[in-house]
Each structure stands twice: as structure tokens, then as C-alpha cells.
């Protein structure tokens, strides 16, 4: 039993939005074939493999450990996210929220443990761009949009597709792509602003645009870091609606400090503390958990 197995072939199978070029395919195949534990795997029929979410979860984190200079940032963490779920992660500063995101996206390598996308894709074996390409998108705390491009162009640039030099030089927007951009403009509520320069948007609008840019990459799993920091109440409500509208179609993990905001969107909440899960459940359950009250809510 080795769910790590054919991550490369998994990627190829899932031909939906991610068209691997032949070189990428060859490279991934080569990388896989060089793994000592599976010398003969390239014999396996690629058709048998795909992103496997048949058991429910799209993300499996098991027995994860990371330490920085002796400080245990993540300590025997177990964390699962179901496909299509909207999950909120809360916890005091230093609880390991951002470190967990870093590990999922390949930015930080753990000391031990496993991280799987579906049942078969081992994220620890993929590089950052590969992880982005198989459909895990991340929004950082500080919004960075392309200020001198219009909102429309920002979405166009982020769109999934062939991003090599010459295809980009000759790229023309197809009707389908235009519709997709319009659809995302609708989702993030910036249809009116489509032709405005992104630099002229308000802070909240920039955050939505950034979420829109993530959506253009057709991610299956969205990691959203502090989406409402610095927002007004109206903007927060709007962001809550936006995130709620994504569940079902995308799996979303939101890390947030603002309790009112979490209360307004969360179905399930995970409380992290000292790198491990302290409690998990509905907002009421979590809020009434005495340990949670002690470390976090009761402050």
C-alpha cells in the first residue's frame, strides 16, 4: 500500500484544465522513474489513476512535524479537508497556521509526516509550481495585483493555459475564455470595474480581485490567508458571500483572525494551538470547548 505512487501519472490523467506539455510530462515521468522505491511503476496503465477523492477528503495531512531551530512549529498535526468544503482555521499567533499553508504549497518541507492531495498525489514530492499547476491556489495576506493593468487584464494574465513565451505572444482571447473571465468578474463582484486600473481599486476590491485571479487558475483547493484583514464591515459581508458561493465547486481553507467573520461563514472550524489541532467542529462546539476558551477565545 503506497498512496504516494503515481503522482505524476495522476497529474497526466487529470487532463481537465491542466494540459501538460510533452516536456513537462517527460520530466515528471523521468522524475518518477528515478524513484528507487518504484522502479517498475511506469508499466502501470495511466488510465487507472486520477485525483482520487472517493473517500471524501481532498486533502490529507497526517502526523506532520516541522521545527525551526528547535521550535516545533507543527507538532503531530492531523488535518483533513473534504472535497467542496469551506473550512476555517483559527488559532493564536504562532499556532502554525501559515506554516501549514507553506507546507501544502511546497514552500516549506516538513521533517516528517505526509501530505496528500486526494488519496494518491503526494504533495511532498512536487515543487511549488507543480503544486500550483495541479490545482492548489493560495492567496497571500497582502494583496498583490498588477496595478497598471485593468481588472480584466489581471484576470486574463492569471488564466490557466499555456504560459510559455511564444504561445503567450500569439495568444488571442477565445469566446470561451472571455466568458470565463466575465463569469469570475461576476463572482467577485467587479463587473463594473472590469476596465479600471487595478491600482485604483480599494483595498477590499483588490482582495477580491486576487481571489478572482486564483479562480482563473481553476483550482480544486483554495488556501486563503486572512482575507478580511483591513476591510470595512460591508466589505467583510461581501467577502463572506463570495467565499460561501465557492463552496461545493471548490474546496476552500480560510485562515482568519476575525471571529465575527469566521462565525458568519464557518460550517466547520479547526482550532490550531502550538502546531496541533486543539479542537474541531461547528462554531458553537468549538466556542464552548473549555480548552479553546482558555487558549484563544477567552482572552
Amino acid at each position: 500500500m503506497s498512496p504516494a505512487s503515481q503522482s505524476a501519472r495522476d497529474l497526466m490523467r487529470r487532463d481537465r484544465a491542466f494540459d501538460f506539455s510533452s516536456q513537462q510530462r517527460a520530466w515528471l515521468q523521468f522524475k518518477e522513474s528515478m524513484r528507487r522505491d518504484r522502479q517498475f511503476d511506469f508499466m502501470v496503465n495511466v488510465k487507472d489513476l486520477e485525483l482520487d477523492i472517493s473517500h471524501g477528503p481532498i486533502l490529507y495531512i497526517e502526523d506532520l512535524n516541522v521545527s525551526f531551530d528547535g521550535f516545533k512549529a507543527i507538532d503531530h498535526l492531523n488535518f483533513y479537508v473534504d472535497a467542496g468544503e469551506l473550512r476555517c482555521v483559527i488559532g493564536p499567533n504562532g499556532a502554525g497556521k501559515t506554516t501549514m499553508m507553506d507546507i501544502i504549497t511546497g514552500k516549506t518541507r516538513p521533517d516528517s509526516g505526509s501530505v496528500y492531495f486526494g488519496q494518491k498525489i503526494d504533495l511532498l514530492r512536487l515543487s511549488e509550481p507543480e503544486i500550483a499547476e495541479i490545482g492548489i491556489g493560495r492567496k497571500f495576506q497582502k494583496p498583490t495585483v498588477f496595478e497598471h493593468h485593468t481588472v480584466f487584464e489581471n484576470l486574463e494574465l492569471a488564466m490557466a493555459g499555456d504560459k510559455r513565451v511564444f504561445p503567450t505572444l500569439f495568444a488571442r482571447l477565445s469566446g470561451e475564455q472571455r466568458e470565463r473571465i466575465d463569469e469570475v468578474l461576476g463572482i467577485i463582484g467587479l463587473g463594473e470595474q472590469a476596465q479600471r486600473e487595478a491600482g485604483a481599486l480599494s483595498h477590499g476590491q483588490k482582495q477580491w480581485l486576487e481571489i478572482g485571479m486564483l479562480l482563473m487558475q481553476n483550482p480544486l483547493l483554495l488556501l486563503v490567508d486572512e482575507p478580511v484583514a483591513g476591510m470595512t464591515h460591508q466589505e467583510m459581508d461581501r467577502t463572506a458571500e463570495l467565499l460561501l458561493s465557492l463552496q461545493g465547486k471548490h474546496s476552500v481553507v480560510v485562515v482568519e483572525h476575525d471571529m465575527d467573520f469566521v462565525r458568519s461563514i464557518a460550517r466547520r472550524v479547526t482550532v490550531l494551538h502550538q502546531g496541533t489541532v486543539l479542537a474541531e467542529g461547528s462554531m458553537e462546539q468549538v466556542q464552548n470547548d473549555p480548552r479553546v476558551v482558555e487558549v484563544y477565545l477567552g482572552e
Partner: peptide, 28 residues
């Protein structure tokens, strides 16, 4: 005026971000 031109301006304004959304900045 091509999309490559828009990618170029994106690199000018936010190079790391452009790399992050999947463009090979060095090749552009």
C-alpha cells in the same frame, strides 16, 4: 499589445507575483 506585452508589464510591476501565477519570467 500582445499578451506577452502585458506579461512584460506585469514582470516590471511585480516580478515575483508573475512567476507565482506560472510565467517563466526569465524566458520572457
Amino acid at each position: 499589445t500582445s499578451r506577452l506585452g502585458r506579461v512584460a508589464v506585469a514582470i516590471r510591476d511585480a516580478e515575483a507575483r508573475t512567476r507565482f501565477i506560472g510565467y517563466r519570467v526569465d524566458r520572457v
